[in-house]
Design a protein around this nucleic acid. Structure first.
Lengths: 228, 228
DNA sequence: CCAAAAGTGTTTCTATTACACCCATGT
DNA sequence: ACATGGGTGTAATAGAAACACTTTTGG
């Protein structure tokens, strides 16, 4: 297009919305905030905000997340662009959704203080503004697709974890159950776990803690080997 | 946000870019056009254009594709949003890329007449404007991911096709070769193909034509069963 | 000692791979 | 008749699933 041509085009508000999943040992949770402004003031919402004129969209996502929750250094991936003309009730806004998985315990300090974000189990999400429910749905779908091919999900656990905890996580994500024996064998066969000498003591026998073998973990992450 | 708050936000040009893949029997091709305007006038480019103020982003993609190539009724999927601040050399433009696979022969009439779009083998793509090369790269990656889990790729073939043609297509996409016997067995075991009584006659023996069994095809498409 | 969870071993079944071999036909 | 893909059969292997069984330890 001729440079002048740009003038005759419409400019549109572009926003980002952040979907943060966390695991509490039993179920997957999503982080939500109470909207501080109209439209939808007081309603629950994803963490969202506008993209600046000279700001990369991905940078905007990180900035907005930090402003609204205090969370920093979270690796978010672009999920989808929601571009229906009427998706925002007040104005035309095209929104790009980003999502990440984090370990709730690890980030809880950053979170709890000044900001009023709250975790909701993904099966008990309250009513949300605009099309945020649809965004969450899409994020869940992508998560389920992805989890079977990439060793994500570990990001949701503490550094040290037991095989049972890992299994519970996968069962929560995939909404199914696995044979505990087969699960252990399969995971261990990938060599992405290192066994510690320490045991977790909540059960009679006690389960050994494991940590990742970073190198093998990243190799698998790249190759996307099927491991569930 | 307070409605007034919108006023203080930046508005940004939003565009769409369309990536159309086609198969000619030997290799995968991408459709490109010569840009008619600055910046980048005369250079090769994906089919792109701006999103209107009251236009769904997905609708814009279909409109732009039609305007620039004549192609209609093509099912495009959203690929990715490219949002770097400096991706367009003239202005700030956030672009949402869409992609589709089509059968070259079937759409050739629609294409060839007035519009000057051209097919390029994906290993011989010329220099492209902006970040369009990166868009194509991303589209190829997603295609390769997807093709192994969903029976796409059939969209790239004529209605009637032989097992060899199908195999060539998959080999082109996956950049590998398959054992022809195993390939035939595996595809046939999915029951998504119906054998015709007609033979293609380019080889000595001649190969039977096949068509899809629509119902089983769509069932597989939904379930995403691994079939390569 | 026993219940309960952790973890290992064994067996069965299925899917994948490699590759031998038969088939149909134009030249 | 024979070379050339087209297509089927078979045996070896690897992986997944089912499930029995052993281990550990707090009560």
């Amino acid at each position: 297009m001729d440079i002048k041509k740009y003038k005759y085009q419409d400019r549109i508000f572009v926003s980002v919305d952040c979907i943060i999943f966390g695991f509490d040992g039993r179920q997957i949770n999503a982080l939500l905030i109470k909207r501080a402004f109209e439209p939808g003031k007081g309603k629950w919402s994803l963490m969202g905000g506008f993209v600046g004129k000279d700001e990369d969209v991905a940078d905007a996502a990180a900035r907005v997340l930090k402003q609204l929750t205090g969370l920093t250094d979270i690796y978010m991936e672009q999920l989808y662009c929601f571009g229906e003309a009427n998706r925002d009730s007040a104005r035309r806004v095209v929104s790009i959704a980003y999502s990440a998985f984090i370990n709730i315990a690890e980030y809880n300090e950053q979170l709890s203080t000044e900001h009023q974000a709250r975790w909701f189990p993904i099966h008990k999400i309250p009513s949300l503004v605009f099309d945020h429910k649809q965004m969450l749905k899409k994020a869940k779908e992508v998560m389920m697709e992805k989890v079977s091919r990439h060793p994500i999900g570990f990001e949701l656990l503490p550094t040290k974890f037991t095989l049972s905890q890992l299994q519970s996580l996968y069962e929560a994500i995939c909404e199914t159950t696995f044979d505990n024996g087969n699960f252990a064998k399969k995971i261990l066969s990938t060599n992405i776990l290192k066994k510690m000498n320490e045991k977790e003591r909540s059960s009679r026998k006690g389960a050994f803690y494991y940590v990742f073998d970073k190198i093998n973990y990243e190799r698998l992450q790249r190759n996307g080997i099927r491991f569930i």
